[in-house]
Every structure is written in C-alpha cells, then in structure tokens.
Write a protein that binds this DNA or RNA. Structure first.
Lengths: 222, 222
DNA sequence: ACATTTCTGTTGTTTTTACAACAAAAAGGA
DNA sequence: TCCTTTTTGTTGTAAAAACAACAGAAATGT
C-alpha cells in the first residue's frame, strides 16, 4: 500500500485531503491493493458489487456480451478512473457489465458499503469525499453522452468523423493518438472492423484525415 | 412557488429535508418556477449553463442535431428528472445538447453556481443536497449505460428486443407501455422508422411480441 | 535476423438498412 | 358526425454495411 501512496494521494477521488485525513479514509474504507493481469476479469456480469475499484495503473475495458455473443466495449478506463462507482452509489448492486483488464493493472479497492453505512468515527471528511465522487460521476456522465453521440451517427464515415473530431477537441489539437486499436475502435463504435478500415482509407485518400497506426491528423474542421 | 411546494418537497433532489431546511435551500439557490410549452427550447446547444433545471411536470427531450441535420434523442425526461446537472457539476458549462419541451412543463430552476460558490449561511444542508444529487447522478449514469446497450445492438431486431426486454425488466412485467411514439423510438434507437415498423410487425407475426400502439407484451424471455 | 503471431488493409458477395412513396388507421377539432 | 391532421404500417428500390477470405505490414519472441 505504502508503495502506491503517492499515486493514491494524487487521485481525484481523494483530492484536497491532507495525509492524515487520507490515512483515516483508507482505513475507514478497508482499502486494499490488488494486482490484475491482462486478460483477467475484474467484474463479471451478474456479480453483486459492494466495492469501488480505483485504477492506479493499467487499462480496463468495460464490456458487455450481447445475447448473441457479440462484444460491446462501453468504455476504456485508465489510471484514476473508477469501476462500479455509479453502480454502488445507485444501490444497483448487480453488475450488468464485465470489467476486463486489458493491460496489467494495479487497483485500489474500497469497501464503500462499510463506510457509508456506519460513518461516525474518522469520516468527518466523508463530505469532501462525496464532493469528489460527485464531480467524477458528473464527468463520467458527460463522457457517456459523448459516446452516445459518437455511436448515434448514421454511417461509418460519420461515426469516425464524429469520434475523431471529439478526440481532437479533447486534446485541443488536430494531431493526436487514439487509445484503441482498430478492432477495439470498431467494437467501441459498433461497426465492422474491415468496413471501418476501408472507410479510414477513403477518408485519407480524400484528404480529410491522415494517420499512421494510432496517430491521427484531422485536416479539416468537421 | 407555493403552489408547487408539495411537488418540490417530494422531489428526490430535496429528499430527507425538513420544511425549514427546504425553504432555506430554495432561497439560497434563488429558486424560480418557469413554465414551458410543448415545442419550447429550454436549452440550446452552445448555451452557457449555470443553472440546474428540475422538471416538476411535463416532458422534455434531450436531443442533439447531428452535423448533417439528423435528430438524435439522447434521453426523454419527466417529472423529477433534472436537466444540466451533470453539465453544471462537471464545470463543463457549454451545453452540447438541446433540451426541448415535448409536453407543457413546469420547471424549477436552481442557481447552482451562486450557492456552491459562497455557501456559508443557510447551507448546513448543502451536504444532504450533494448526497441526493450524487444518488441522482449515479442513477442517470446507469441509465445512460443501458441506452448504450440498447443502441449498440447489431440489427434493428436486436435493438428492439433489447430495448423492450430492458423496459420489461424495469417495469417488472412482460406487459407495459412505452414512453415513445414510433418516430421517437426510432430516433432513440437510431434507426429508420419505417424499417422499425416493419420489423415490429415481423416480431408480432412470429409471435415474439404483441402490441397495440404503445402497449407492448413480450411473449418470450429474451 | 528470422520465424511466428498479431494487426491492418483490400476486395467481392450477401445481407441489412435507409429512403421514398403511399396506404391505412387513429386522433383531434369543428 | 365528418373532415383534417397526425401517426403507423407496407412495399419496392437504392445504398450501405456486414461478412468472409486473404494479402501485406508490424510487432513479438527466440
């Protein structure tokens, strides 16, 4: 735990807390560190969730298997993102998604139930904690709406352009690197990989974009 | 304001507050009531948002016009739902969606900025308020993920079955009424209305579902 | 450096969807 | 009630996407 103290301290979930406060919070939440390897399932659809998972390092996909066996990537999560916060907070304890580790990860696990139930002792700072989580949730919310915008486009071309221009806006540059490989991007946008590759080539040929592997350049403002 | 006092009091956003507390909150937030007529635009994409809108009655669609002029319905909101909470809370003040009134609405408008900035006086209960909003946000989050699940399905048929079975689960009955008319449902699921109608007929013919107007019956567990 | 595996791009074919145009049914108003 | 308007269902056609199969490029391990 000590090894990751600085990382934990810098996490937005504990933003603005002094060391002594943080220590008490960690104790109150019965915090533990757990390591996952790429490919591990952190949460399986159907699991009863009572803990919050804070990613300190690595990469985790939130996925869903459709009834017909197709994978849907809902989100890709990294350092400082949380898993299951909204689920636990909404008392909706049964997960309906899978959390799959895609790059070896270090995860801080907080027993939220425990603390929120009988929070008399150390948690004068539960207030600050809630405010932080509130901010995190609201940001997630905005991101989910953005994802809805991306996948709500009519054609493969529109989905790509919307996704790329949203990424460009976020990075405040028309030159950026995306987090997905082609298959993952296709799963994220709910389109066929090969059809997507084809459309990307066309967009490159027509001069709208340029790319090499995961580095993209938007040539026109969409 | 007095006219709607009971409705405001019962709203989840003020859950667990005594009358005196509520009064002070409303003052602190400079709360006002505003009426909108069906068709009115409450928020336009691009607007700078600093207030939270709580729907006391009526219906509001959160929509987005794609660059190419197609309408996307992101959410349909009713009594007790809020508009712009996540936006304001994430300090992301420029709206990128439209909020359109679809049935005459009564809306309580709260000046969130004002209060959260200099909250010394009445707001000992700001804590309870934040906790309530936190819960609301987390619920919204779960709903957005459900919407993503719905529209991430591959075919029109799968989208319909996923949507209908999710609705059925929420109402805990295989017989339920949906909130959308056909055009709205098509816009929500991002599909063509006529193609959707055709698929609905087929599903009915094949015995998977039955429906009349907005009343649906799921005949098989999907 | 080489072999092996994974990832990405290309092409033709089949399937699905969007679109347009219209018919039928339902809702609303005078 | 009848007329008008809105909503929903049906059909054929054109366009787009999925799928499959494979080639080429890049990454990985030895």
């Amino acid at each position: 735990m000590q090894k990751y103290y600085q990382k934990i301290k810098n996490s937005p979930i504990f933003y603005g807390m002094a060391d002594s406060e943080l220590d008490r919070m960690l104790e109150c939440f019965k915090a533990v560190i757990k390591h996952y390897e790429s490919g591990d399932t952190i949460i399986r659809s159907g699991d009863i969730i009572t803990k919050i998972y804070l990613i300190l390092d690595g990469e985790v996909n939130i996925e869903k298997d459709s009834y017909w066996g197709r994978r849907i990537i809902i989100q890709k999560l990294h350092e400082n993102n949380n898993i299951a916060l909204s689920l636990v907070a909404s008392k909706n304890t049964e997960s309906n998604v899978n959390a799959i580790c895609t790059k070896d990860a270090i995860v801080l696990i907080l027993n939220y139930e425990k603390c929120s139930a009988m929070c008399q002792n150390a948690c004068m700072h539960h207030g600050a904690f809630i405010r932080n989580m509130f901010k995190i949730l609201s940001k997630e919310n905005v991101e989910l709406i953005e994802k809805i915008e991306n996948i709500s486009q009519k054609s493969i071309r529109d989905k790509l352009l919307t996704y790329l221009s949203n990424e460009s806006q976020k990075r405040k540059s028309n030159m950026f690197e995306i987090q997905f490989n082609r298959q993952e991007l296709a799963d994220y946008l709910n389109i066929d990989r090969s059809a997507m590759s084809f459309e990307l080539s066309k967009l490159k040929q027509e001069g709208f974009i340029n790319y090499k592997k995961n580095k993209f350049i938007l040539k026109v403002q969409v």
